[in-house]
Amino acid sequence: MINSELSLAVEELTKYYAARVLALDNVSLSVGHGERVAIMGPSGSGKTTLMNIISGLDRPSQGQVWVNGQDITGLTGAELTRFRRETIGLVFQQFYLIPYLNALENVMLAQYFHSLADEEEARQALVRVGLNDRLYHLPSQLSGGEQQRVCLARALINSPQILLADEPTGNLDKANEEMVMKLFHERHQEGYTLIMVTHDPDIARMADRIIRFDHGRVVPEDVVGNSSLAKPLL
């Protein structure tokens, strides 16, 4: 029975890739509503595979994933697509902005796929991440930090239930890293559930809880048990 208080519940999740490469090995974990969780681990430990499965971009070989009480492992391709656009906000390390659309249009793109593009709402989202003077700039005309802030505005524009960020500061300098993390902190304060993959222990310490991965498994002894142990940077 899945606790409805949980934002995410993963049970005995296993993922094989072709040639029997084991990416996730019987992983179980849970994340409460409004919780801020950091996922850490070396490259190839299965962090991104887990994120892909949670976000509905990939399917597990075995096990189950519940997001807000909904089992997403049984969803069809079309249902997973709908789940992604309505439930999940994604932020990537490489930003992934459409190069020929300006900042405003990149945010509106997520609205367009969700329902209807609303230019004013998209403008407000960019103002909230401090990009009011960069609305009509193309990604190539923005710094890395500015691009990541556009991505954050895009991830939040459809009010997702969970915000998933895969190394969101991995390509940023210290100043931009702090600015982006401040924005994540503010979103968390607003009640968003935040799951973030990171290599950076300082970033991870911002989380209520750290889950460590190694060779596709959760390392139980490394779990930081409660939010009181977290040492927010901001």
Partner: peptide, 11 residues
């Protein structure tokens, strides 16, 4: 990226 953002194959 479009698919990750929730664009259907039809779209």
């Amino acid at each position: 990226l479009m698919k990750a953002l929730g664009a259907s194959s039809q779209r």
